[in-house]
Design a protein around this nucleic acid. Structure first.
Lengths: 167, 167
DNA sequence: CGATAATGATTACAAAGTGGAACGATTGTC
DNA sequence: GACAATCGTTCCACTTTGTAATCATTATCG
């Protein structure tokens, strides 16, 4: 076969971007069954691990302007998944918390995440899966990525799903 | 340290999505110096490896509707990077080709890609880098991903670069 | 202690991005 | 030779996006 390739056309960085978008899209499809977007799921997880933060902080971590965070949180609050609590010492701030319903949904979300993980890593042996995890964690750590947020959360609506059954 | 984690909060799938978005964003910043978006770079590469295809085909691979592909290709043509050639046997079709200028830019792009790869995999030994490549390729292959396109190409404008020098 | 600046949440709004439908031109089918 | 299909393109309504202005509350400071 031919030898020299001008570009490493399938370098690790490109594969990461490609697989990342693929995995993110697949995950978005899965959680659409729970009426959640990736950004919404991300917020729920953030609130679970770190409750009581202000909206501005959360918006910052999600990479979206505060103005768009408001209706974003509104919907989740109307659905009874999160709660806005006033801070008595500083009444400007809304401390966001997960409701019981929100925690329940988060549990379902965890299950979905497990299935998703399995689907993505289907072609890997348990040892290889462990290897991959370690390599990815190392890179993520060295690149200074926070454990809960990724830049893709900026986008609210992934897409309205042109399904495969409507002719 | 604490033991049970309700969710594999840093599973491989999540890390892939996170790192993928990170790598894609970083790459977008790099090629912004060449006045290119990821989608534009993707098209150039597609034309290099597979010239003469129709606009509809290319739009399909890029995941965008033909209506948006037209101005997208227009700009690249105005900049003299690609060429629309009429097919004598079927005058409906425009066969897209890379110009000399386009090939030249693609070479620069390859260089950028190498630097980018190095930056992402900085924390890995050569052996580990090879391991990662093999694992990612296996997954990508099993997930049915084409070697040249990834779903992130759907988006045209990555962002207007909020630089770090303008107060 | 009262005026002023600063911060958080929210609203208003203009600009841009997006996909689907409609339109000529050309080609395949029968 | 009429009719459906295909390609490139234009048109357009709809949504998404970020910035600026607004209101309430708190810190600063003379």
């Amino acid at each position: 076969m031919t030898a020299s390739a001008p570009t490493p056309r399938t370098g690790a960085a490109f594969l990461l971007a490609q697989l990342g978008a693929h995995a993110a899209g697949l995950f978005a499809e899965r959680i659409a069954g729970l009426d959640l977007t990736p950004a919404q799921a991300g917020l729920l997880r953030m609130l679970a691990t770190n409750p009581g933060r202000s909206q501005r902080e959360l918006a910052g971590d999600l990479g979206m302007p505060p103005s768009r965070f408001v209706p974003f949180a509104d919907e989740l609050e109307e659905r009874g998944l999160i709660e806005r609590r006033r801070n008595p010492s500083d009444r400007r701030i809304y401390a966001l918390h997960l409701t019981g319903k929100g925690e329940k949904l988060l549990a379902e979300l965890a299950q979905v995440g497990m299935n998703h993980e399995q689907q993505i890593c289907e072609s890997l042996s348990p040892e290889e899966h462990g290897q991959l995890l370690e390599l990815l964690r190392r890179i993520a750590d060295q690149q200074g990525l926070h454990p809960d947020v990724h830049p893709g959360y900026r986008r609210l609506h992934p897409k309205p799903k042109p399904a495969h059954d409507t002719p």
